[in-house]
Design a protein around this nucleic acid. Sequence first.
DNA 1: GTATATGCAAAATCTTTGCAGACAC
DNA 2: GTGTCTGCAAAGATTTTGCATATAC
Lengths: 139, 139
Amino acid sequence: MADKITNRCRDMGLQMTPQRLIIAEVLGASTDHPDVEELHQRATARNPEITVAQVYHTVKLFEEAGILEKLEFGDGRARYEDADRAHHDHLIDMNTGEVIEFVDPEIEALQEKIAEKLGYRLKDHKLELYGVPLNRRRQ
Amino acid sequence: MADKITNRCRDMGLQMTPQRLIIAEVLGASTDHPDVEELHQRATARNPEITVAQVYHTVKLFEEAGILEKLEFGDGRARYEDADRAHHDHLIDMNTGEVIEFVDPEIEALQEKIAEKLGYRLKDHKLELYGVPLNRRRQ
DNA sequence: GTATATGCAAAATCTTTGCAGACAC
DNA sequence: GTGTCTGCAAAGATTTTGCATATAC
């Protein structure tokens, strides 16, 4: 599990240098949603030779290779998670920053239904759902 | 309609200077999701005396007063819309940046159900939903 | 007259990029 | 040897802030 990302990197033909290996391990070992700063801290804990720039280089590369999913929850920092995990959505506690993962089959069906209703062919469009905060709603 | 924001500003005890009045009018007249740069352009079209800094000051103030909703769709720019509009969610076309508004009663019930299931009291938490892009899903 | 608003410029934050040296194959 | 990777530092982009001046009430 911890080296699944590493394997996919090799499959994509990416060189697995010591720096990338550690970043890949840190990513694989993370069950939360670390930002670059946090990834860098976890990586330097294993090897102090890793720079923030390298973390930026690497997450960008991994994202472009489809290995990582970039998440942006509106606090100005991008977060990353393994793109190969089973699908789930996120509910963010805007007061605390806590990220709650959940899966609900109804919400999935619903998103597809909405996309269809709007005439979107999912193969051609990357559609992302943003819900307005639950307790800010009117009407 | 175009001056509803202005009224709420006065209700909140905010001084309605010429600059704020124009920014409020621009916001009230917008049916899309302008960012600060776009708001500034629309405002200067009516009065060239408005600075970007003032737009930033004003949207922040209006957001804190509950008059505006700040939306962040992951492109690095904050977008704003009237917080008093009827509730809706957003589906973002990540290829084109297009923002599609929609309302679906099922998705609302679902979000509340999920929050409840997770033991969240909506009065105490501002919970925001982020869906992973529809066509990036596995399993 | 006092409190608030304005606007310039500087700073803060997150991210990207240029490039020279280092490493992998 | 050629292509890729690394890491420093500089630059970009968006947003925030300090503060002197101007305006609102």
